[in-house]
């Protein structure tokens, strides 16, 4: 276990140095921050930098995973943002369900680079805007085998649209992740959809620089395809259906943000061999430079 962790830690120290270097050289602005699990739309300001550290856990019927994840985001323009996320796996799942962690961090041990393009934005009032964002990403696994299947690289694409105001928030979106075959085996693909509703109570309507809190109800619908094994005689190409719902909370103060939440499955119509989940937990700390 220790030997597995140490190479990853050294990788992340190098990554941390890169973040600091880029952060020092760049100008820094902030942009909105949304839900923890669901797809969202806000992008950073031009030249803005956002650093995130997240703790994530996923519980199945027999195992629990623990992971730290780091996310670096940079605003190329106010509508175009790049992201890079790497994991430190503390405890991996021997049999991992096919899922994404959230819109810009993967749940399993993948390193992912992504590009967000906010292709539509209409700020039509004080604190109010409609916007739509497209996401494309590529990822490489840090593990060779996941759920007894060889893990290949993957691509991810998603689109989301939403509304933000000082009181109400809402986003809907959908995405697709495709894992490439590796040594004759392939992880199942993952079409998914998300819907999020957010609310900021009056008590948290204090003006900047007072702390700013909001509550989200998040939901995910995932349709993971079956894995393909080497020597498999009959590939059925069937899909599971999972629906998860849960609350999350986002607190913002100046350049800092903290969000935490949980998701619980309400529907799990699983194919043979698919892993049943019990919960997903996440906490995320953000800092805008």
């Amino acid at each position: 276990m220790i030997s597995k962790i140490f190479p990853k830690i050294s990788l992340n120290i190098g990554y941390f140095k890169l973040i600091v270097l880029l952060a020092i050289s760049g100008t820094a602005m902030a942009q909105g921050h949304g839900p923890l699990y669901g797809l969202q739309t806000p992008t950073l300001a031009k030249g803005g930098v956002d650093l995130n550290v997240a703790g994530m856990s996923l519980g199945t019927e027999t195992e629990t995973s623990y992971m730290l994840r780091y996310l670096f985001s940079y605003g190329i323009t106010e509508d175009l943002q790049i992201n890079l996320t790497t994991p430190t796996m503390i405890e991996r799942l021997g049999d991992a369900p096919r899922t994404r962690g959230n819109s810009n961090m993967t749940a399993n041990g993948d390193i992912e680079a992504s590009l967000w393009y906010r292709f539509f934005s209409n700020a039509f009032g004080v604190g109010k805007r409609f916007e739509s964002t497209a996401i494309v990403g590529v990822s490489a696994p840090t593990d060779d085998v996941r759920g007894q299947v060889n893990v290949g690289n993957s691509v991810h694409a998603a689109i989301s649209t939403g509304y933000a105001s000082r009181t109400w928030y809402g986003w809907i979106g959908g995405g697709y992740q495709y894992y490439f075959e590796k040594d004759g085996e392939q992880l199942g693909d993952l079409p998914y959809a998300s819907a999020v509703v957010g609310y900021r109570p009056n008590i948290f309507m204090g003006d900047y620089p007072k702390p700013d809190w909001r509550i989200f109800i998040e939901s995910l619908a995932e349709f993971p395809g079956d894995n393909k094994f080497e020597g498999q005689m009959d590939f059925t190409d069937s899909r599971s259906t999972k629906v998860l719902v849960g609350p999350s909370f986002l607190g913002l103060y100046g350049a800092w943000g903290i969000s935490f939440g949980a998701m619980f499955p309400v529907v799990q119509d699983l194919t043979l061999g698919a892993v049943k989940e019990r919960y997903r937990l996440a906490i995320n700390l953000s800092y805008w430079l």
């Binding site: 902030a30 934005s121 700020a123 604190g127 000082r166 103060y253």
Partner: peptide, 12 residues
């Protein structure tokens, strides 16, 4: 218009 959160205000 369009500014909805504390980090938005902080950044501006």
């Amino acid at each position: 218009y369009g500014m909805d959160c504390a980090p938005c205000a902080y950044g501006l």
